[in-house]
Design a protein around this nucleic acid. Sequence first.
DNA 1: TGACGCTTTCACTATTTTCTGAAAGTTCGA
DNA 2: TCGAACTTTCAGAAAATAGTGAAAGCGTCA
Lengths: 173, 173
Amino acid sequence: MSDEAKRLEEAREQFVAQWGALGTQWGINRTMAQIHALLMTTAQPLGTDDVMEKLQISRGNAHTNLKELVAWGLVRVVVKKGERREFFEAEKDVWQIFTTVARERKRREIDPALGVLHQCAEDSRDMQTPEGKQFHEQMRQLEEFVGFASKVADRVAGMKHGFAIQLAAKMLG
Amino acid sequence: MSDEAKRLEEAREQFVAQWGALGTQWGINRTMAQIHALLMTTAQPLGTDDVMEKLQISRGNAHTNLKELVAWGLVRVVVKKGERREFFEAEKDVWQIFTTVARERKRREIDPALGVLHQCAEDSRDMQTPEGKQFHEQMRQLEEFVGFASKVADRVAGMKHGFAIQLAAKMLG
DNA sequence: TGACGCTTTCACTATTTTCTGAAAGTTCGA
DNA sequence: TCGAACTTTCAGAAAATAGTGAAAGCGTCA
C-alpha cells in the first residue's frame, strides 16, 4: 500500500471516530454516525461485511444502523447486478444532507412538541385566576413560536441550494 | 383547593411530563427538561425543596440540574432578602429562550464539528489519488457548510425579536 | 425439494447515563 | 467558635441505551 493510501486510511479513520463522538453529543447513536461518516467518505458502495470489518462491529449492529440510515434518507441501498447482497451508498451532497436531516428532525422533534403545546394551551384556555391565565399565555406563546419554527423548517428544507445561499448571503451581509 | 387550581395543577403536570419526554428525544436529560418546564410555568421562583417535591426527585439530582440550567442561561438564581437559601426562576420570554439555546447548541455542537472538519480537510489537502482528492473535497464542502451554519447561528442568536419576525415573514411570505 | 447466501430479528450482555442519599463543605449569626 | 441552614460533591445503585451473536426467515437456483 502506498504512503498516500495509508495516510488516507488514517484520515478517514480519524474522521469516522470523531464524527461518531460528535454524533453522540447530537443525540445520535455512535455507530450510526460512524457508518454515515464512513459511507460519506467512500466512493463506491459498501456491503454489510465491509462496514462490519472497517468499524469492528457485529452484523446485527451494522445491519440495524444501516437500515436506520436508510430510513433517515441519508443512505441508499444499491443493488449490483449479478450480486445478491445489498450495498450501501451515502448521499454526498452537503445541502441535500442538510435538508434531509432538517426534515427528519422537524418530524421527530418539532412536530411532537407542537402537539404537546397545543394540547396544554387548549386545556388552559378558559382559566380565570392570574396563575391560570399566565400558564395559558405561556403555552400559547410557546405554541406560536414552535409553530413558526415548524414553518421555517419546512421552507428551508424545501429550498434549492442556490436560493438558500442567496437568502443567507442577504442575512449575513 | 378550587376546581380551577386543581385543573391548573394537572395541566402543569401534563406539560412537565411531556416536555421531559421531548427533552429526552432532543438529547437533553429528562430531569433538566422537567425542571425547566416546571419553572417556566411557575410565576414565583422555587427553591430546591419545592422542585424536589414537585418532581419527586432527590436533592442531588435537583441541585445538579438546576445548576446545569443556570449554566445554560435558561434559569436565574434569585436571592430573597431575609432568606438564606437560593430560589430559581426561569426565563419566560420565548425568543430569549430560543436565542440562548441556539447560542449554547452552537457552542456545543457546531463549533466542535468545525474543528474536526477543518483538521480532516487540512490533513488531506495535498492528496493526489482520486480517492484522496475526493475525500479532501468532501471534507472541504462539509467544513464550508458547517462554517456557514455557524455564522447563521451567530446572526440569528444576536437578533432582536422584532427583526427576526420581519426576516421570517419575508422568508415565509 | 433443499441447501446456499444473505437479511432480519431478538434475547441476552455490556456500556453509558442518570439518580440517589449521605457525607462533606460553606456561610453566617449568636 | 459553634452550630444551624443550606449547598455541593460523589460513590455506588438503578435505569436506559447500545451492541452481540446466534437462530430464524427468505428467496433463488440446482
